[in-house]
Amino acid sequence: MSERELPGLPTAALKNRDGALGARVVWLGELASRRRLFARGGALMGGGMGLILALVALPMLALVALAFATRGTHGEIEWTLTLNNLKRLFGYGILGWSPDILWILSRSVLVAAVTTVLCVAFAFPLAFFVASRPPARRYAWLALIVVPMLTNVVIRAYAWFPLLGMHSPLTKLAQILGFLAADEALYPSALAVYLGQTAINLPFAVLPLYAAVERLDPALIDAARDLYASRWGIFRHAILPQVRAALAVAIVLTFVPALGAFVVPDLLGGARGMLLGNLLQQQFFTARNWPYGAAISLMLVACSVVALWYYGRTQAREAAR
């Protein structure tokens, strides 16, 4: 780190003759030596870094190591190193090549993507609605959006059963209109999965969007309108650039958990189309194949990293503006 990086400080004048690290600097109005600043910074960051190391880095390393291990006959972990678990991720399974894992992966990405699009699409109007309420009532509205999250996901999935089941008015209506045969119901179906997934992930899209929408500069919208911008034009040129960072947060916060979802797709989709989350659960529980489970986890982590990379890129672009 060169001294020029310290913002706007007259460091040159205070510099000692012996070496850069012992040099005196003014840091936020405080006269200190660089050495002391580093020591203090290190002490303050140590706890957090230690936590990250213990709770994120080490388990991740264990996961990487585990992905190369072998499942013993009785589900125990044997440290015979193998690439088989990783090969299985590309479809080269025990029974030869089969595309199932690729189907599972693409299905998971599709479900997560559709969920994200739906969540964002519903979250925008909600965010504008809440932001347009009188300030005193905004938090009550936000609370209404967040409160359902206090209930367990499984229970919220079960709550859809009577609404979409065989005997529900909605199903009867769909049957009368000819969308469903007489012995079909709205659940289990892809529709039910997306409804459930959207309902569960919606708050994660609303909260960041609301934070941005609340701080929108209305003058820009007025200006766009004065210049005869169409409704889409206003959104595209006056609103979107102001909320882009929040939109990225909303997308990441819905997409990443949606990618690992397994409870809702199982319950509302009837456990018919397997997702990565289901496969993962099956390996750790039923199949008791932790090494393969670890390999699948790595794949999920990789997908999440891609999403976070996208987030980082938008943030960087935003900062560059």
């Binding site: 967040v146 999250m149 367990n152 996901v153 499984v154 708050p203 994660f204 909260l207 960041p208 609301y210 934070a211 941005a212 701080r215 960072a245 929040a246 947060v249 916060l253 958990p257 409870v263 659960q281």
Partner: peptide
């Protein structure tokens, strides 16, 4: 606005952690 967005972000993350821990 940044800090506010960050606070909401953290809040959302906490909820996320809470509900994924609660399931199954």
């Amino acid at each position: 606005m940044r800090t506010r967005a960050a606070a909401l972000f953290c809040f959302a993350l906490m909820l996320l952690a809470g509900c994924s821990a609660g399931s199954k």
